[in-house]
Amino acid sequence: METIVETHNLRVEYRAQNSAQPKKLAVKDLNLKVQAGEVFGFLGPNGAGKTTTMNVLLGFVNATSGSASLFGVDVREPIARQRIGYLPELTYYYKFLTAEELLRFYARIFGIPRAQADQRIDQLLKLVELEPARKRAIKTYSKGMQQRVGLAQALINNPDLLILDEPTSGLDPLGRMKVREIIQRLKNEGKTVLFSSHELGEVETVCDRVAIIKDGELKVEGRVAALVEQHQANLEKIFLSIIGYQPSAPATGK
């Protein structure tokens, strides 16, 4: 099976704000492999190093040491991102453009021919139910609509790998359901999905495999079903025990 995402001894250190402080270790010798067709959940508490790892994979941050590749191509090469779609946690788009213009802009970046881009834009705007608002500037959209534009732009190049950074955060239940449906659809089409989320129920439903990291270190990696069977608990309990969560004692009082 083809390895789509691979990190080898990936290490990321950030410089401290002042020279007296030591460097902050965000990711410590991380080894990950995501195979083609998998839905892979990347879990961890806030500050664990999930976003940093994703930032390395997307070429936003350079690794201090180790390597990372997408489709066997070093992530430092822009061409490594030709076959991926990325949905950030929050909506970051040119608000003076319309949804149609934004999608056309990204289609042009991918070098998609005009006729094909038109067809793809129509399909995507229907998929995310923004067809009636396609000519309106994004600044006039509600938060949910902006998130749906984000989803459409992530799919503009019909990606083989989709990287989603907490895709359902801030969405209403309908929006979450829609995102889940799309992930399921992509999975059925044989696409690979790598996503981080704090919604562990959702992860358990959608993912084939998960990795849990804490303080930049990989704690657990495996198939969801195998982990559930091994620990005799649901993913949430497994996650809490791995990150060392201690439930506080019930308050005593009169």
């Binding site: 997307l58 070429g59 936003f60 822009p78 061409i79 490594a80 991102r81 030709q82 991926i84 990325y86 950030p88 929050l90 970051y92 788009y93 040119y94 608000k95 990204y106 970046i109 991918f110 984000g150 732009q153 990287i163």
Partner: peptide, 17 residues
């Protein structure tokens, strides 16, 4: 500031471009 650079650089675009 608007963080539009993130979805942009997640495409096959280099900082030089």
């Amino acid at each position: 500031e608007n963080r539009t650079i993130f979805p942009l650089l997640a495409k096959p675009v280099s900082r030089g471009q």
